[in-house]
């Protein structure tokens, strides 16, 4: 009659078709990604080359690194739109201080300052329980202003670009792989482990999945949300190191619009904006899809901006399929 009177069903020994269906549902974005790569490989010989792949990884490393932190915020049930401004801020600060006090102190100060901004976000959203969209929107504007005030509206750069070891973060290679790629993928691995294997990760999922139930279970929700904003500030700081080191200078609005591309990558990977689900693997794939769309279209001879049109379609299709599979039907029945 009902499922609970029949007892536990026997464990299936062999995968069945429904398992395949489940896999397609759960790993849909991954499968789409692989198909996508194969399709592009046919259209351009260069696309499937190692060189090209490593270029794409390097290109997405900045957005990708930021997306890792934002994913943590989103899993915790909130948004962070301030990361673009925060990127401008951190890049300007680290580049400007580099010549004044040396690379190491510059990085230390920038880290502390960026985390402080993250802490402000965290206090407003975590402890004061304000809407994260509006708070981080306000912060977007405020941080932009702070950056401009600091730089006096001037762009900054590093004078001796050859001698400084600061070039390591954006320009060097380790074992044949670019340092930015190491940072991006390294952080992804670390974060994935933290999210899935530690008590902290479990708390983030619980708070994002059902804040009320988490509170009733003795999880201190405010602290958890607060901490997620520190995480996204930290990843933004890492992205700023890559960016500042690669360019060896910075415009004071360099991060403008990044927040939305970052969010696009997170959403594309399949992390729900409702919170409580998502993973670093998903986000890495989402960001790579963005990167490969751009790269593939360029190789096929389309303009740079054509990728944005494709991104539009891909985002909506990806989320639609996700929503539709949960609903069990393609379209809503709303009148």
């Amino acid at each position: 009659m009902t499922s609970d009177t029949t007892g536990a069903p026997p464990r299936a020994m062999l995968p069945t078709w429904s398992d395949v269906g489940h896999l397609a549902q759960r790993q849909g974005i991954l499968i789409a990604f692989i198909l996508f790569i194969i399709a592009f490989s046919f259209t351009s010989e260069r696309f499937a080359s190692w060189d090209n792949a490593s270029t794409v990884f390097r290109q997405v490393s900045i957005i990708g690194t930021m997306a890792l932190g934002v994913t943590v915020v989103v899993i915790g049930g909130n948004l962070d739109l301030s990361v673009g401004s925060m990127l401008s801020f951190a890049t300007v600060l680290v580049v400007d201080l580099h010549d004044k006090i040396g690379p190491a102190p510059a990085m230390a100060i920038t880290l502390v300052a960026t985390l402080a901004i993250g802490a402000v976000n965290g206090i407003l959203v975590g402890f004061l329980r304000l809407n994260s969209l509006i708070v981080t929107l306000g912060m977007l504007s405020a941080i932009q202003g702070v950056t401009l005030i600091y730089s006096g509206g001037q762009n900054v750069d590093i004078t001796d670009q050859e001698a400084t070891w600061f070039a390591f973060f954006g320009r060097d290679f380790l074992l044949g792989v670019a340092v930015p790629t190491w940072i991006f993928l390294g952080l992804a691995v670390v974060f994935q482990i933290v999210l899935t294997r530690t008590a902290y990760g479990r708390r983030v999922f619980a708070v994002g999945g059902n804040p009320m139930a988490a509170t009733f279970s003795g999880i201190r929700r405010s602290y958890v949300v607060f901490s997620t904003y520190l995480v996204s500030a930290f990843t933004t700081f890492c992205a700023a190191l890559i960016l500042g080191s690669r360019v060896m200078g910075s415009q004071n609005n360099v991060g403008q619009g990044y927040e939305l591309m970052v969010l696009a990558g997170v959403i594309l990977g399949g992390t729900s904006l409702l919170g409580g689900s998502g993973s670093m693997v998903k986000t890495v794939i989402g960001v790579l899809i963005l990167g490969f769309i751009q790269n593939g279209l360029l190789l096929m001879g389309y303009q740079y901006y054509a990728q944005w049109l494709v991104t539009w379609v891909v985002i909506i299709l990806a989320v639609w399929l996700d929503v539709a599979s949960k609903r069990g039907r393609l379209f809503t029945t709303t009148t």
């Binding site: 939305l260 969010l263 049109l309 539009w312 989320v319 639609w320």
Partner: peptide, 27 residues
């Protein structure tokens, strides 16, 4: 229509449109 028929949140639908329409402008 996308928001209505697909049931995808307006935030995501219009975030996509924001990127895509800007691409359209550049193209």
């Amino acid at each position: 229509m996308i928001v209505w028929k697909t049931g995808v949140d307006a935030f995501i639908v219009t975030l996509g449109a924001m990127i895509g329409v800007r691409g359209l402008v550049f193209v």
